[in-house]
Design a protein around this nucleic acid. Structure first.
Lengths: 223, 223
DNA sequence: AACCGCGTCATACCTAGGTATGATCGCGGC
DNA sequence: GCCGCGATCATACCTAGGTATGACGCGGTT
């Protein structure tokens, strides 16, 4: 089970890491210098393979990536990282890009797409936007992970009951539905409330929504 | 009050409208022909001003727009349409575009950005994607509008009670909080349930979430 | 003036929810 | 074989929710 992480203080932007992937050592060096000058950590890689083979930091950060790279294209790397569960926001750079390439990257969720040469300030603005997006994403993921960790402490029966209860069924309906006595459903329900860390049905419903749980039949509207 | 629209049958894609804005009559004609050949309605405009001055259909559709246009730039038009509450997905075309222009358009939410000349199939694919996005958006908006229409039938007191109830407060707590007797709160609560078209608290909580209502204090976690 | 909608509250009655105590059963692990 | 846990259920007791009936006051409309 994961430790609850909702108590973590917001990480100051200065501790974020920018992952730089470019086959040109000169570019790597100048980006490294640029980012360090504003207090950001950096990790340098000459190829996608290096990046994939290394253990990445799990703190806040983003990736600055050349589209045209030895071995894998930057756009392909984007897909591979997603498959590996790495979801840093990506900023693309290119020396010889075209419009379809930039559009494809943006459709795939890139934060920005800069043509070389670019102004330092444009790159810094893009990184700032990327780190903001990452922070947002991390906050949401942390909240959701806490809820999921609680959900995983539930037994199968408790989850079943939780689904029906958050769908709006009464205890007796749940009991009839899964062939139990009402008192047993009440016990499971009480366990669910305790394990999910909520005291009211309203809060339980919200957590269930966040999890995508709850057998939502159309119980609404009785005009 | 708005009519509930959740009972409307799903509109077949053939009845969608493509709004074409281009200053070149030849382009307009060929796009018109292309879209009509696949069963789409079209509306043709030679300039942004024409588009803004005309009454647009309110059915499903999307906009195909040249970036470089007399008067207003296509990118500016995008912003103006949003301000007018028109939110059709936009596909940009350009004869002399560059990467920053395409990136800016995509960041602003464009569905695609095609360089002229483009293949018919690419345009049709883009329009298909745009219409799908529009359909999704319309479905969500319709659902939310129904809920909002119900919410607007509530009196001020009823909304107040609804906020506290969906936050998880007990009737007696709500009563103490706003200086009423518990029985009065129960009556308001009953009215809320009836007017919001729900029979269970779970459903009410979900509708409140959709509305962004509910005074969510942290009632959770009592480890 | 009469009426209506809204808000307020009381009494009464019933249903639903919640918890504690205690008990039985089955399963997997030590 | 014993233990613990989960699941099951009963009894008992209390609180919370929901609705019906009836009543009163207030402000705006007809």
């Amino acid at each position: 089970m994961t430790r609850p992480n909702q108590a973590q203080p917001p990480v100051p932007p200065s501790s974020a890491t920018v992952i730089i992937v470019d086959d040109d050592a000169g570019i790597r060096a100048s980006l490294d210098s640029l980012f360090r000058s504003v207090g950001l950590e950096t990790r340098l890689f000459g190829s996608p393979a290096e990046l994939l083979g290394s253990s990445l930091p799990d703190g806040p950060g983003c990736i600055v990536l050349d589209v045209r790279l030895p071995g894998v294209s930057g756009l392909d790397l984007q897909g591979q990282l997603v498959r590996q569960g790495i979801s840093y926001p990506i900023i693309f750079m290119t020396g010889h890009g075209d419009i379809p390439m930039s559009v494809r990257a943006m459709k795939a969720g890139a934060v920005d797409f800069l043509s070389k040469p670019f102004r330092d300030q444009d790159m810094l603005d893009a990184v700032t936007a990327a780190l903001e997006r990452d922070a947002q994403h991390r906050a949401e993921a942390a909240t959701k992970e806490d809820i999921r960790a609680q959900y995983e402490t539930l037994t199968a029966r408790e989850r079943e009951v939780m689904g029906h209860v958050t769908a709006g069924l009464m205890n007796k309906q749940v009991a009839a539905l899964i062939g139990l006595s009402e008192i047993t459903v009440k016990i499971h329900r009480g366990n669910v409330m305790r394990k999910m860390g909520v005291r009211t049905l309203a809060d339980l419903v919200r957590k269930a929504e966040a999890l995508g749980v709850s057998q939502t039949r159309g119980t609404t509207d009785h005009t």
